[in-house]
Write a protein that binds this DNA or RNA. Structure first.
Lengths: 234, 234
DNA sequence: AGCATCTTGTGCGGCAGCGCACAGAGCGGG
DNA sequence: CCCGCTCTGTGCGCTGCCGCACAAGATGCT
């Protein structure tokens, strides 16, 4: 159980702004519980809130041909709704909670005011936006070129980094949607990873058994993404 | 031959900022000629300049597995180097000139100052950034799901919108790199479009014969992208 | 215990695109 | 005019994934 101080710094963006600014911001935040499948924002619709995940994580998905595909993932290293900083109220992506947990929530209007008064907050959120742009581009290539098994490994590692630990819940079906492949494709890829003792996967319960091994099974995108984040917000 | 006034407003971002701010900015700009294959920015390297294309256009590409893939296209409707606005000096994408022509160029430092003093400029560039984010996401799905022929049609239409007219120069080989497919894939797709009298394509010289027809051959991404732009910057 | 439901595993034909290789076609320079 | 270069067209076997369909295991509710 994290203490109150931990909770304040658990979100890495918030942790990077000076304590004074952070406390001013947090005073206007609610701590909310996010449960899987909650929809935080919708393409074309006004964003009412900005979210700073604490121990939850959110899939950013784009609609494409009547279905959706994941194009980004936001956990405690980021923020959902950063584009409000760009003066655009409408989201262009859909944000769906994937890993349940808590997050700081602030209304769009309050967030704007806080951003106005804290250059540091502005800077950090802007930088995060920049990272997201890079990751969107990376992801496009990943989805185009990389094999399902490698993409699955990447996804699991990214989820691990954002979730509480080495275990989380996600069905093949749902993962297939995120990766933009058939459910059977995930079943096979997961089977292969399991045969290599890298993960255990049973009825939605994933456990990462060998993180290192999984990293070498993953495509470069996992490492690249981490490095990009570190170089901009490290 | 466009007049001086036309040239000032030929870039749509600039056209959207008040005349006074625009002239202040243009006073610090150089009008430069961009020729195909010029590299305006490079991943990981400092961006020295910001470019406002007038009648040139630029491919934004991401490195992936030792090759590159196009993830965006910037012409007179946009600006290259917008991420400077986010306080990040390093580009995450590579910008390669595809359609020769001219552009307004301003140094990064000057651009920052101008952005500082013109809220309108800030707003427009920020909004454009938001559009780019949406298009990056769209593009990821496009590259993953859509057939080469439809993607080729989309690409040609986007190039037409950004270029001088219905004709431009681009070899199959180069296009294949942009789309992330084999050269032969482009050859076949182009052959199919040509057989349907939608384009003429000979040794790099493309002519769009039937724009409407080409639009119906293209994937939705073309229309979606235009609509997104219009809804944010219209 | 029994049943419905959700999740996972397997099999099969088909297809778009890949890698490779080579042949022709247009174009410019010596 | 011929040579070399760039660009385009064609053929062939392969593969990763798709769509579809069905079986089997796990879980929870009555």
């Amino acid at each position: 159980m994290p203490s109150a101080v931990d909770a304040q710094t658990a979100n890495r963006i918030l942790a990077l702004v000076p304590r004074k600014d952070r406390q001013h911001l947090l005073a206007r935040c609610d701590k909310v519980a996010l449960t899987p499948a909650d929809e935080l924002c919708k393409p074309g619709e006004r964003m009412g809130y900005v979210y700073f995940p604490i121990d939850s994580f959110v899939a950013m998905v784009a609609p494409i041909d009547e279905v959706v595909m994941q194009v980004g993932m936001v956990g405690r290293e980021g923020v959902v709704g950063a584009s409000l900083m760009l003066g655009v109220d409408n989201s262009s992506l859909r944000g769906i909670v994937q890993g349940g947990g808590s997050a700081w929530r602030i209304s769009a209007a309050d967030f704007r005011e806080e951003a106005e008064r804290s250059p540091s907050l502005r800077q950090k959120v802007n930088r995060y936006l920049c990272v997201q742009i890079g990751q969107l581009a990376q992801n496009a290539g990943c989805a185009r070129f990389h094999l399902v098994e490698a993409r699955l490994a990447s996804w699991l590692l990214m989820a691990r980094d954002r979730a509480h630990g080495n275990e989380f819940f996600i069905t093949h079906e749902f993962l297939a949607n995120m990766l933009g492949v058939r459910r059977v494709g995930v079943t096979n890829a997961a089977g292969a990873l399991q045969a290599r003792k890298l993960i255990r996967y049973s009825r939605g319960n994933v456990t990462i058994l060998n993180g290192r091994g999984l990293e070498s099974a993953a495509c470069e995108c996992y490492r690249t993404g981490k490095e990009m984040y570190a170089s901009v917000l490290g």
